[in-house]
Write a protein that binds this DNA or RNA. Structure first.
Lengths: 342, 342
DNA sequence: TGACGGCAATGAAACCTTTCATTCCGTCTT
DNA sequence: AAGACGGAATGAAAGGTTTCATTGCCGTCA
């Protein structure tokens, strides 16, 4: 058990070969005669040699790790997305580092720097409220970046789901079920995903024309369970006249929060308040009242993003930036069951 | 934007100073005169210099990154635990790499190698079924390892929650509520956490003495939502005579799966079948039927583990291995509400 | 027997940063 | 005015791996 780093040099000396040969055993074993190879392997074993990745990387100029920066590791949407990334990455011999920006731009910036300094193979970024200008700088210095869960202009690759359509789907559904006083729960509104879903919602309302009030927006601090409860409190606190008959939440975690408060306050879902969520995470079907939700192809999102990233990293010269947009899909469950007419 | 790595050497040349000075600006700015410092900083800015972490690491012999290997990134228990780790880590200027072993020992081994090759600052390991022998080797070569969510002998640090007690809590509660035919859902049984919870459950039953049948064990492939559904199907398929009146699940995800199937099959929870989960993840309170669960101090688990790891990494000579064991706590909700006597 | 080809093995150079002993230079002391 | 002092800057060395041009060797062929 040798403590201070056993290096190729030590292995070489121990096996009685040159260090170049050791390297060959490690990287192109077929070029080394079986006898020598065996000797070297045994030396490696006996000395407990462990490759130094830092040195390899230094030499190679690039690491074999993809960085994925997400808004919230606690949100199943992102862990499922990460699953897709990991799958595609490991198929290509790459590893994944998962970074949690917690919707905070300073943390996002921190991780961007960290990943660039580590010469990451590439970065997958689910940006927060603002897309940092540094993204372009970083890319121009040679670290490819693909945006996930957010569309972009032609100047970069991105993979997203059409949030505008998603918002429309949700509201069309609620209108069709007879709701006229609808609230939107989500935030921060600066977040593209949130803003687009709200735009889609408004569009659907307007297209419908008269009969429906403008949507009431309940802005939240984040897209979390806790924020959902806060929003739920606010909604439950309204007088019956002003209380919406349906709530469209910008994601499922919020919806769960709202749902929990409604139940606690003895408001029936969907009887008193219908709820539609967004993402259709696995738990949606298992919620107190199974949740109607707008489904996004999470795993595929991650996989596609990774493929684009690899493409960009591999042939940076011929590579053409692409913007992939998936379509969301409405999954109807009990939380928005038809209103009894009264 | 300079493509091929701008190095300290380039910065030094551009600023008209020696490379040692650039390094000083970067690491001990107070030792450099303000004028020179400004000049160097400007050079860095203009050239778009980015530190090469690999080279720093190579020099330092150690990285500033902690690796956390968990069984399932999709399980909120582990993401909450990761949150605690990240908090403690960032307070100490360390970063976190989150690795998902997916309960597979080959993936676990892969990440162990990867982290050792990267000369990680330390490794936090939530081991799968078997604790790999390599753990000791890796530690002896200088990479500290702390076990999380699993106790250990005196030869290493570990942070865990008393699963035996947790199992007892759950079963005592169900017995007290009048249940006599109880099933245990969990697996793989080789997993320490699962085995200990089951042992605790059995112990509680035996202590109770006559009147209660032995527990029925429904083994699952993993501690996931999907596995829970499988188990639920099996339980729902039993004849009324043989069907348990209560199910104790080795974690909340399983419980959700079971719950979903029960509901779908028109079995009332807790009327026909009571359910107790484990972990008390946030969703537990929001489930179809709010879930009774055994709470674990997840965040604190992560924080404490990180502190032990840092301690071990910092003074490896005087460091004494410690085994921290937290106590679980039962949180009673509707899913185990009192049985109506009939 | 001499030349050649091919396989194996070699080892210097490069990757980039940090450290630290050393040099330089201007100022203060006596 | 000479010497001592201290702050600032220097640059060589080290850290471990990979690459690749080169050397060494042996067998084969003419």
């Amino acid at each position: 058990m040798t403590r201070p780093g056993v290096s190729v040099t030590n292995v070489a000396a121990y096996a009685g070969v040159s260090l170049g040969t050791v390297s060959n055993v490690l990287n192109r074993p077929e070029r080394v005669s079986p006898a020598t190879r065996a000797r070297v392997l045994q030396a490696i074993e006996e000395l407990g040699f462990v490759r130094n990745e830092a040195a390899r990387q230094l030499r190679a100029g690039r690491s074999r790790t993809i960085g994925l920066i997400v808004l919230d590791t606690g949100n199943p949407f992102f862990t499922d997305l990460a699953g897709g990334v990991e799958k595609a990455a490991s198929e290509n011999g790459l590893s994944l580092v998962l970074c949690n920006s917690d919707e905070k731009s300073d943390r996002e910036a921190h991780y961007l720097s960290l990943l660039e300094e580590q010469r990451a193979f590439g970065i997958l970024l689910a940006p927060g409220v603002e897309l940092p200008a540094r993204v372009d700088e970083i890319r121009s210095r040679g670290t490819p970046i693909v945006l996930v869960d957010r569309g972009s202009s032609r100047t970069q690759c991105s993979v997203s789901v059409d949030d505008f359509v998603g918002g429309q789907l949700a509201i069309d559904h609620l209108l069709e079920r007879g709701h006229r006083r609808i609230a939107f729960v989500g935030g921060p509104l600066g977040l593209n995903q949130v803003a687009d879903r709200l735009r889609g919602a408004r569009e659907a309302l307007q297209r419908r024309g008269a009969g429906a009030e403008d949507i009431t927006v309940v802005e939240t601090e984040a897209l979390t369970f806790a924020s959902g409860r806060d929003a739920g409190e606010r909604i439950a606190g309204l007088s019956v006249r002003r209380r919406p008959t349906a709530v469209f939440c910008a994601n499922d975690l919020l919806a769960f929060g709202v749902l929990q408060v409604m139940t606690k306050q003895n408001l029936a879902v969907p009887g008193d308040v219908a709820i539609v969520g967004y993402d259709d995470i696995d738990f949606a079907a298992a919620a107190a009242v199974p949740l109607t939700s707008v489904r996004q192809p999470r795993t595929q999102l991650g996989q596609t993003a990774t493929e684009l990233l690899i493409e960009e990293a591999t042939d940076s010269t011929t590579h053409k930036h692409r913007q992939v947009v998936f379509s969301p899909e409405l999954v109807v469950r009990e939380s928005s069951a038809r209103k009894r007419s009264r």
